[in-house]
Amino acid sequence: MNKREFLRQVVAFLPAAGLLRMFPGTAEAKELVGAPTDEYDPTRHWYGMGVDVDRCIGCNRCVEACKAENGVPDEPFYFRTWIERYSIRADGETTVECISTRAAPPEQAPPEDPAVVRTFFVPKLCNQCAHPPCVQVCPVGATFQTVDGVVLVDEKRCIGCRYCIQACPYGARYLNPTTRTADKCTFCYHRITKGLLPACVEVCPTEARIFGDMKGRADRLVRFQRVNMISVLKPDLNTEPKVLYAHLDGAVR
C-alpha cells in the first residue's frame, strides 16, 4: 500500500466513525441519571439525617447494624458510622474517644472522673455534604452526588488513591481492605430507595437518629428541624452538611 492509497482509504473510512453515534446521546444520559423508575423517582427527594445528641446512649447498635447491612469489615477500625465519647473537664480540656472500637460493654461501670464537668456521646457518619470536598478532589470522578443528595463511590472506577479520605473534614471515609477502594456511608442507599430506613436509624433504641427527606412536607426530619435548634459540624467549611445535629455541645468538632 502506498501513501496515496492509504490516505484515500482513511477518508473513505471517516463516515463509518458515525457508528459511534449508536452510544446513548448526551440528552438521553441525563434522563438516565435522574432515571425515575416505576417505583422510585430520585428528583423528588433530598435526603438528610437528624441526630439528637441528648438522646444517644452510646450502645453501638447503629455501628453493628451498619456493619451487618453494608458488609463493612469487622475489624474495629473500619466504620461507616461510629460513636465518640466527649469528656470536657473544668479547665476546658476536652478528650474524645471512639467507643465503637470495643467488643462488648464493660461488666463494671467505668470510674468517674470528678474533674469532668460534661460528658456525652456523639454519633458520627458521612455528613452527605451538599458541597462535598471529597467529590472535588477525586481525580477519576469515581465519587459523585446523586440527584437525591447522597454522595456515592463508584467502586469500579475508584483507583484507591485516598485523596478523598484526606479531603473529608469529618473523617467519614476509609479504604476498604477487600475492594481496595474508598468506602463510606451511603445512607443505606439500597434501603432508602425502597422506602426503608437506613440500618442505623432502624435499630437506634432512643430515636437519637432521625432519617428524612427535606423535600417532604410532613416529614420527620422537617419536624426535627422545626422543633430543635440545629447545628452542623464545621459550618465554617461551607460544606453544607445534611446531617443535622440537635443539642450539640460547642466542644464537638
Binding site: 446513548p24 446521546g25 444520559a29 438516565l32 441519571v33 451487618a68 463508584d154 430507595t193
Partner: peptide, 27 residues
C-alpha cells in the same frame, strides 16, 4: 463524531446508582 457521553461520567454514575440500589437487604 464521538458522542459527549463517551467522555462523561454519567453512564458510570447511573451504573453505580443501579448497583447500590440492587444491594441485598440485611435488616
Amino acid at each position: 463524531i464521538m458522542p459527549a457521553t463517551l467522555f462523561s461520567a454519567r453512564p458510570h454514575q447511573v451504573a453505580t446508582v443501579e448497583r447500590e440500589m440492587a444491594k441485598p437487604l440485611q435488616h
